[in-house]
Amino acid sequence: MEDLKNFIDKVGYPRLIIGGFLLILCILAAVLAIPIPGLLGDILTRVGMNGILVLAMVPAIQAGAGLNFALPLGIVCGLIGALISIEFKLGGFTGFITALLVAIPLSAIAGYFYGQMLNRIKGQEMTVGTYVGFSVVSGMCIFWLLAPFRSPELIWAYGGTGLRVTVSLESTIDKVLNNFLSFSIAGVRVPTGLLAFFALCCFAVWLFGKTKSGAIMNAAGANEKFAIATGINVNQQRILGIVLSTVLAAIGIIVYSQSFGFLQLYNAPLYSAFPAVAAVLIGGASIKKATISHVIIGTFLFQALLVVSLPVINILADGSMSEVIRIIISNGIILYALTRKTGGDLT
């Protein structure tokens, strides 16, 4: 009994429940004779395309600013970067890298100002962040409508005002990473470039944690009073964390979009923070602590669950149930994290 409790404590309820649920779904999938290689390929792709957005949570949590619900802030910067690269008709890796080069400074600036703001409202970062994210997305809707883009890829074919709701990337950066060194093994398509890029980002964040500034930022986030007593400028460290998080979000959406094949504008990024938040929590992170392993485990569990549940539920019940399950799981996990005692330390 004691061992069981220790085990649960160590693994944590979120991982245990989601893991168990996934296991049941896998058994069901096997019973229903759903082709496994296809599912595996899907899981790999989706882990790669969502992973960086989840990774964006890590610096914010480590710097003590909690879950970054203002992820859309970075996302719109990433979208702008991608749009500009398309506007200049840049395709392939050139287009991808141009998109990054435009998006990174933009998101760093946005993150800097957002970080300044968060420093004035310590303890309420998540509530305010959520609505900052919403406001940015809805404000950008007006921007998309008025933005001076001319490329026919971007604007409506029949000449209406503003950008399209979804922009196809087929002729530009569609799947540049996914197809890079991609190969098939036993029917499973491995998106090597995508996974490698995700791994690279993870490694960069991990490496940052090993630098002096990374260690200092972690200390500032773990215990503000301690940090002050150690002569650390806590506010500066928090801004650093937010900037990194916002930049990663911008990179994340570009990677996501190239894999998805479309840029989704207007209201599409509205709830984009929630799956990322849920994934990192499922991985075992808390409002105060997150590591790279949480990101990888969480993204894998969450995406695997979605991938496997779709065909299973399609056979057993209505297709829209998969979306419903996603809503319940992601919000349920966030709710769990918010109501945990240890989660209260932030305020």
């Binding site: 002096k212 260690a215 200092i216 200390a219 773990a222 215990n223 150690t230 002569g231 650390i232």
Partner: peptide
């Protein structure tokens, strides 16, 4: 203390900074 950090980091962090 950084309660959720290791002894070695706790000892080193101030001198590091």
């Amino acid at each position: 203390l950084l309660l959720d950090d290791s002894i070695e980091h706790n000892i080193a962090i101030s001198a590091l900074q």
